[in-house]
Amino acid sequence: MRADDTCKMATWNAALLGGAFVKERDARFEAEALVWMPEIYRAAVRLTRDRSKAQDVTQEVFLQAWRSFSKFERGTNCKAWLFKILFHCVDHERRSWWRVRLFRADEEFVEQQLVAKPSIPDRLTNEEILDALDSLRQEYRTVVMLCDIEELSYKEAAEAIGVPVGTVMSRLSRGRAQLREKLDVLAKDYGIGGVA
Protein backbone atom coordinates (compact mmCIF):
# COMPACT_ATOMS: atom_id res chain seq x y z
CA MET A 1 0.00 0.00 0.00
CA ARG A 2 1.26 3.45 -0.89
CA ALA A 3 1.79 6.18 1.64
CA ASP A 4 -0.71 8.49 -0.07
CA ASP A 5 -3.30 5.68 -0.12
CA THR A 6 -2.87 5.41 3.62
CA CYS A 7 -3.50 9.12 3.96
CA LYS A 8 -6.61 9.01 1.74
CA MET A 9 -7.98 6.06 3.65
CA ALA A 10 -7.38 7.81 6.95
CA THR A 11 -9.26 10.87 5.68
CA TRP A 12 -12.11 8.71 4.47
CA ASN A 13 -12.30 6.92 7.77
CA ALA A 14 -12.31 10.21 9.61
CA ALA A 15 -15.20 11.42 7.45
CA LEU A 16 -17.08 8.21 8.15
CA LEU A 17 -16.52 8.40 11.86
CA GLY A 18 -17.61 12.02 11.84
CA GLY A 19 -20.97 11.01 10.39
CA ALA A 20 -20.52 13.24 7.34
CA PHE A 21 -21.16 10.31 5.07
CA VAL A 22 -24.44 9.47 6.81
CA LYS A 23 -25.57 13.11 6.78
CA GLU A 24 -24.92 13.40 3.08
CA ARG A 25 -26.82 10.17 2.52
CA ASP A 26 -29.73 11.49 4.60
CA ALA A 27 -29.94 14.62 2.51
CA ARG A 28 -29.84 12.67 -0.75
CA PHE A 29 -32.46 10.20 0.46
CA GLU A 30 -34.73 13.06 1.47
CA ALA A 31 -34.37 14.81 -1.86
CA GLU A 32 -34.41 11.82 -4.17
CA ALA A 33 -36.51 9.13 -2.48
CA LEU A 34 -38.86 10.50 0.18
CA VAL A 35 -40.45 12.91 -2.30
CA TRP A 36 -42.07 9.89 -3.98
CA MET A 37 -43.96 8.77 -0.89
CA PRO A 38 -47.44 9.74 -2.23
CA GLU A 39 -46.82 7.81 -5.46
CA ILE A 40 -45.61 4.74 -3.60
CA TYR A 41 -48.55 4.86 -1.21
CA ARG A 42 -51.09 5.21 -4.02
CA ALA A 43 -49.57 2.28 -5.86
CA ALA A 44 -49.54 0.27 -2.63
CA VAL A 45 -53.24 0.99 -2.14
CA ARG A 46 -54.04 -0.26 -5.64
CA LEU A 47 -51.83 -3.31 -5.26
CA THR A 48 -53.03 -4.37 -1.83
CA ARG A 49 -56.57 -2.92 -2.06
CA ASP A 50 -56.21 -2.26 1.64
CA ARG A 51 -55.24 1.20 2.92
CA SER A 52 -53.95 -0.04 6.24
CA LYS A 53 -51.77 -2.66 4.58
CA ALA A 54 -50.68 -0.06 2.04
CA GLN A 55 -49.32 2.10 4.85
CA ASP A 56 -47.31 -0.80 6.24
CA VAL A 57 -45.98 -1.60 2.80
CA THR A 58 -45.07 2.05 2.18
CA GLN A 59 -43.11 2.17 5.41
CA GLU A 60 -41.34 -1.07 4.54
CA VAL A 61 -40.49 0.23 1.06
CA PHE A 62 -38.74 3.29 2.47
CA LEU A 63 -36.94 1.31 5.16
CA GLN A 64 -35.61 -1.08 2.53
CA ALA A 65 -34.79 1.80 0.23
CA TRP A 66 -32.87 3.50 3.03
CA ARG A 67 -30.91 0.33 3.78
CA SER A 68 -29.91 -0.17 0.18
CA PHE A 69 -29.68 3.45 -0.91
CA SER A 70 -25.95 3.04 -1.56
CA LYS A 71 -26.91 0.66 -4.36
CA PHE A 72 -29.14 3.22 -6.05
CA GLU A 73 -27.39 4.44 -9.15
CA ARG A 74 -27.32 8.22 -9.07
CA GLY A 75 -28.82 9.83 -12.16
CA THR A 76 -31.26 6.99 -12.79
CA ASN A 77 -34.98 7.12 -12.04
CA CYS A 78 -35.41 6.90 -8.28
CA LYS A 79 -39.18 6.53 -8.60
CA ALA A 80 -38.70 3.45 -10.81
CA TRP A 81 -36.22 2.07 -8.28
CA LEU A 82 -38.73 2.60 -5.44
CA PHE A 83 -41.45 0.86 -7.47
CA LYS A 84 -39.14 -2.09 -7.88
CA ILE A 85 -38.78 -2.27 -4.10
CA LEU A 86 -42.53 -1.84 -3.71
CA PHE A 87 -43.25 -4.82 -5.95
CA HIS A 88 -40.66 -6.82 -4.07
CA CYS A 89 -42.35 -5.96 -0.77
CA VAL A 90 -45.83 -6.74 -2.05
CA ASP A 91 -44.57 -9.88 -3.70
CA HIS A 92 -42.87 -10.94 -0.51
CA GLU A 93 -46.05 -10.35 1.46
CA ARG A 94 -48.38 -12.11 -0.90
CA ARG A 95 -45.90 -14.51 -2.38
CA SER A 96 -46.32 -14.61 -6.10
CA TRP A 97 -50.02 -13.96 -6.28
CA TRP A 98 -49.67 -11.23 -8.84
CA ARG A 99 -47.16 -12.99 -11.02
CA VAL A 100 -49.66 -15.48 -12.40
CA ARG A 101 -48.91 -15.77 -16.06
CA LEU A 102 -52.04 -17.11 -17.67
CA PHE A 103 -51.35 -15.15 -20.81
CA ARG A 104 -47.73 -16.05 -21.28
CA ALA A 105 -48.36 -17.96 -24.48
CA ASP A 106 -49.87 -15.04 -26.33
CA GLU A 107 -48.20 -12.02 -24.76
CA GLU A 108 -46.88 -10.79 -28.07
CA PHE A 109 -46.78 -7.07 -28.43
CA VAL A 110 -49.43 -5.47 -30.59
CA GLU A 111 -48.12 -2.00 -31.09
CA GLN A 112 -51.22 -0.59 -32.72
CA GLN A 113 -53.26 -1.26 -29.63
CA LEU A 114 -50.85 0.71 -27.45
CA VAL A 115 -51.51 3.84 -29.46
CA ALA A 116 -55.25 3.87 -28.77
CA LYS A 117 -56.10 5.90 -25.67
CA PRO A 118 -59.87 6.37 -25.56
CA SER A 119 -61.37 9.10 -23.42
CA ILE A 120 -63.36 8.59 -20.21
CA PRO A 121 -66.72 10.33 -19.83
CA ASP A 122 -66.58 13.12 -17.24
CA ARG A 123 -69.65 11.82 -15.46
CA LEU A 124 -67.82 8.78 -14.16
CA THR A 125 -66.63 9.36 -10.62
CA ASN A 126 -63.09 8.80 -9.39
CA GLU A 127 -64.32 5.84 -7.34
CA GLU A 128 -65.89 4.22 -10.39
CA ILE A 129 -62.74 4.68 -12.43
CA LEU A 130 -60.57 3.30 -9.64
CA ASP A 131 -62.96 0.39 -9.13
CA ALA A 132 -62.61 -0.38 -12.82
CA LEU A 133 -58.82 -0.18 -12.48
CA ASP A 134 -58.89 -2.39 -9.37
CA SER A 135 -60.98 -4.96 -11.18
CA LEU A 136 -58.24 -5.55 -13.75
CA ARG A 137 -56.05 -8.59 -13.34
CA GLN A 138 -53.09 -7.71 -11.14
CA GLU A 139 -50.49 -7.94 -13.90
CA TYR A 140 -52.50 -5.63 -16.18
CA ARG A 141 -53.32 -3.18 -13.42
CA THR A 142 -49.65 -2.96 -12.52
CA VAL A 143 -48.43 -1.98 -15.98
CA VAL A 144 -51.31 0.47 -16.51
CA MET A 145 -50.34 2.11 -13.22
CA LEU A 146 -46.66 2.25 -14.04
CA CYS A 147 -46.86 3.28 -17.69
CA ASP A 148 -50.07 5.30 -18.02
CA ILE A 149 -50.29 6.87 -14.59
CA GLU A 150 -46.73 7.06 -13.26
CA GLU A 151 -45.35 7.53 -16.77
CA LEU A 152 -42.42 5.18 -16.39
CA SER A 153 -40.83 4.05 -19.65
CA TYR A 154 -41.49 0.48 -20.76
CA LYS A 155 -37.92 -0.36 -19.83
CA GLU A 156 -38.23 1.13 -16.34
CA ALA A 157 -41.55 -0.64 -15.80
CA ALA A 158 -40.04 -3.91 -17.01
CA GLU A 159 -37.14 -3.56 -14.58
CA ALA A 160 -39.47 -2.63 -11.74
CA ILE A 161 -41.64 -5.73 -12.08
CA GLY A 162 -38.94 -8.04 -13.40
CA VAL A 163 -40.39 -9.01 -16.77
CA PRO A 164 -39.22 -8.40 -20.36
CA VAL A 165 -40.13 -5.12 -22.07
CA GLY A 166 -42.26 -7.00 -24.61
CA THR A 167 -44.32 -8.45 -21.79
CA VAL A 168 -44.91 -4.99 -20.35
CA MET A 169 -46.11 -3.77 -23.73
CA SER A 170 -48.48 -6.65 -24.34
CA ARG A 171 -49.86 -6.45 -20.80
CA LEU A 172 -50.34 -2.74 -21.21
CA SER A 173 -52.22 -3.32 -24.42
CA ARG A 174 -54.50 -5.87 -22.78
CA GLY A 175 -54.86 -3.81 -19.60
CA ARG A 176 -55.95 -0.75 -21.53
CA ALA A 177 -58.40 -2.78 -23.59
CA GLN A 178 -59.94 -4.36 -20.50
CA LEU A 179 -60.14 -1.02 -18.70
CA ARG A 180 -61.79 0.50 -21.74
CA GLU A 181 -64.36 -2.30 -21.80
CA LYS A 182 -65.17 -1.90 -18.12
CA LEU A 183 -65.53 1.87 -18.43
CA ASP A 184 -67.62 1.38 -21.53
CA VAL A 185 -70.08 -0.74 -19.57
CA LEU A 186 -70.21 1.89 -16.83
CA ALA A 187 -70.76 4.66 -19.33
CA LYS A 188 -73.61 2.76 -20.95
CA ASP A 189 -75.21 2.33 -17.53
CA TYR A 190 -75.25 6.12 -17.32
CA GLY A 191 -76.86 6.24 -20.71
CA ILE A 192 -73.97 8.22 -22.13
CA GLY A 193 -72.96 5.81 -24.80
CA GLY A 194 -69.68 3.92 -24.81
CA VAL A 195 -66.18 5.10 -24.17
CA ALA A 196 -65.20 6.84 -27.34
Binding site: R42, R46, Q55, L124, T125, N126, I129, L133, I149, L179
Partner: peptide, 21 residues
Protein backbone atom coordinates in the same frame (compact mmCIF):
# COMPACT_ATOMS: atom_id res chain seq x y z
CA UNK B 1 -58.08 8.12 -21.00
CA UNK B 2 -54.78 8.57 -19.22
CA UNK B 3 -55.46 12.10 -17.90
CA UNK B 4 -58.83 11.21 -16.42
CA UNK B 5 -57.44 7.96 -15.07
CA UNK B 6 -54.48 9.81 -13.57
CA UNK B 7 -56.76 12.36 -11.93
CA UNK B 8 -58.84 9.63 -10.37
CA UNK B 9 -55.77 7.72 -9.27
CA UNK B 10 -54.09 10.80 -7.77
CA UNK B 11 -57.21 11.65 -5.80
CA UNK B 12 -55.94 9.12 -3.26
CA UNK B 13 -54.06 11.37 -0.85
CA UNK B 14 -51.35 10.45 1.58
CA UNK B 15 -53.11 9.59 4.88
CA UNK B 16 -52.30 11.90 7.78
CA UNK B 17 -49.50 10.54 9.91
CA UNK B 18 -47.98 8.22 7.32
CA UNK B 19 -45.13 10.55 6.46
CA UNK B 20 -44.35 11.04 10.14
CA UNK B 21 -44.51 7.29 10.68
Amino acid sequence: MSDRLRDAYNSEGLPPGLETR
